[in-house]
Design a protein around this nucleic acid. Structure first.
Length: 591
DNA sequence: CTAGGGTTAG
């Protein structure tokens, strides 16, 4: 309790007086059911019948306007019902604004309305204002209860204060309040949000011991957290556990697990779950179908995808923009731009689900891959013309497209456009930019940008360094690349297999085989597993260097690791067989 | 007689 007080007192003054959120519209043109109900005096009855949960936003605003004008003023109970309904629509700012208006009109708040405001501030990332409200209400003599503190707990969990969240639960107990299922579920969610998955899972067990049974929400939180980590086995076990208990998983729970199975490459298990839904009478929805269709497309299982598509149409589940995008993406990835465009045209014609920025990103990427940059740009203009705003992906795609097409000027022009359009460039954008410049013999320009990047706020990843090391090596500046590689440790970055391969290939290109061998040893010492690329690069270099023995040994090692010679290695060996530099037996060893 | 927690597809 002490800590709570301390937190509350450091908070700012009662925030509802600030009025920074403006006021709600006081006039409304249509005469809605709610307003009529209110003015004819039946609002008390209507409000008490729990019908407010279905109220539309406009009606809620109108109703509030009527309520504050009516005399005598309606009881605070009616206000809190209305505010709850608006909070459920996630219009947190509006709830706060209404709270301010009530305050100005002299309507005093109570524990319930204060709790609503605390919830709204927490959910709109204004934890400090939530704490200010808590301070204010406690000064007025209202003791926060489990509901109030659960809201605050949620605020701590979302506000990067997981330690405070954990101690808040301890304080609840000290205050003599019994944490309930909501408390545990909130904290479990917070632990997942802060990557403390095992603590989250352990807490599920603890809550059972404390007499709180996990409910559907708890399972939703836990399954979602587990699925995001890719622990599909545990997810499937939990799904079974729900069945054994009395909690019926609904379509959303199934969708979550099906999605994870798709993402983590267990397509057939996902299809099994889809069939299981059928048996249990749980109706799949557009999420279920879109997820499975897109996954099947990614695996090239067109027939199966088409089957599901017609199945969903038969069942009158309308494909939406995500479904269309999955199909357009499938065609575009196959290079079938004509078909992709046909689907896009169909979307526009039918008007039921219009293309969005993702649709355009998919199509633009398709055109870029075919080096049809003019058409890619044309689509970009079409999209902008429709009032859609390009995002980082859109610009990244075009920049990369122009670079791959060897058109550095246009690439840099798009980058400038991106900056002037106010779309933030991510490290991915810079990686594309640096990679493009390096691959188009513009190492010097890349170095200038790289230096600026190092000074900026943007967090450079290991991939950026790999790109620069590669660029330097390709420009013949292996010494500089080596220095950059060596500086990684000082920056707290660990070279990964790509960085090692890049550096190795640079050394090999200069026939610095001793250095390459030493680096290869260091790589293994550092616990970085060589991949097929590592071995093939070294094997080719040793062959070019005339060291048949070293190559042969590496081939043995590579094959024992389950890798095989790649196309370039086979090409080199074939050439060397032809001009007699290699013996036929060498080819047998490789294949 | 009112307040609190969560989740899914491109």
């Amino acid at each position: 309790m002490r800590i709570l007080f301390a937190i509350a007192l450091t908070g700012k003054r009662f925030a509802l007086q600030k009025g920074k959120l403006g006021t709600a519209p006081s006039s409304f043109s249509h005469c809605s059911f709610w307003v009529r109900a209110f003015s004819s005096g039946v609002y008390r009855e209507k409000l008490s019948r729990n019908v407010l949960k279905d109220i539309k936003l406009d009606d809620a605003i109108g109703l509030f306007g009527q309520m504050v004008k009516s005399r005598p003023l309606p009881s605070i109970v009616y206000f809190s019902k209305l505010l709850t309904a608006i909070a459920k629509m996630k219009k947190f700012d509006l709830v706060i604004s209404f709270g301010e208006q009530m305050q100005k009109l002299g309507i005093s708040h109570n524990l319930f309305t204060y709790s609503i405001f605390i919830n709204c501030f927490c959910r709109s990332s204004q934890l400090h204002l939530a704490l200010a409200i808590l301070g204010k209400m406690m000064k007025l003599g209202y003791e926060p209860d489990v509901v109030t503190l659960n809201s605050l707990l949620n605020g701590f969990c979302h506000g990067n204060r997981i330690t405070d969240a954990v101690s808040l639960v301890d304080q609840m107990v000290e205050m003599g309040l019994q944490p309930d299922t909501v408390t545990f579920t909130t904290l479990i969610h917070g632990l997942f949000l802060h990557s403390k998955a095992s603590e989250a899972v352990a807490l599920v067990e603890r809550m059972v011991v404390k007499g709180c049974q996990p409910n559907l929400v708890t399972y939703g939180v836990v399954l979602n957290g587990i699925c995001k980590r890719g622990d599909t086995d545990l997810a499937l076990r939990l799904l079974k556990k729900m069945d054994e208990g009395k909690i019926k998983p609904g379509v959303v729970i199934y969708n979550t697990v099906i999605d994870a199975l798709c993402k983590y490459k267990h397509v057939n298990d996902a299809l099994d779950l889809f069939n299981e839904m059928e048996i249990k009478g749980i109706k799949p929805d557009v999420f279920t179908y879109s997820c499975l269709i897109s996954c099947l497309c990614n695996y090239g299982r067109w027939e199966d995808a088409a089957g599901l598509l017609s199945n969903m149409i038969e069942r009158k589940i309308n494909p939406n923009v995500v479904t269309f995008n999955a199909l357009i993406d499938a065609f575009a990835k196959e290079g079938k731009l004509l078909e992709a465009e046909k689907l896009y045209e169909e979307m526009i014609k039918s008007k039921d689900c219009l293309p969005d920025v993702v649709t355009y990103n998919i199509l633009i990427k398709g055109f870029c891959k075919c080096k049809r940059l003019d058409e890619g740009m044309e689509l970009f203009r079409q999209m902008t013309g429709k009032g859609l705003v390009g995002n980082t992906v859109t610009y990244n795609t075009l920049i990369q497209g122009f670079f791959h097409d060897g058109n550095c000027d246009s690439a840099q022009m798009v980058f400038k456009q991106m900056v002037s359009d106010g779309v933030s460039a991510s490290i991915m954008t810079y990686n594309i930019l640096l990679d493009g410049l390096c691959n188009n013999e513009k190492l010097e320009t890349a170095l200038v940008i790289f230096k600026d990047l190092q000074k900026s706020e943007i967090e450079i990843d290991i991939f950026t360094y790999s790109i620069m090391i590669d660029g330097m090596c390709k420009a013949g500046k292996v010494g500089e690349a080596w220095d950059l590689f060596g500086s990684l440790g000082l920056k707290g970055l660990k070279p990964d297999v790509v960085t090692y391969n890049t550096m190795l290939s640079g050394l090999c290109r200069k026939s610095l085989m001793q250095e390459a061998n030493a680096l290869f040893r260091k790589m293994k010492e550092d616990g970085i597993l060589p991949n097929s690329g590592t071995y093939n690069t070294l094997i080719r270099a040793h062959l070019r260097d005339g060291d048949e023995t070293a190559s042969a040994e590496l081939i043995k090692e590579m094959r024992s690791c389950g890798f095989v010679g790649d196309a370039s290695t086979f090409g080199l060996v074939t050439n060397m067989l032809h001009d007699g530099r290699l013996d036929k037996s060498f080819l047998d060893m490789l294949s």
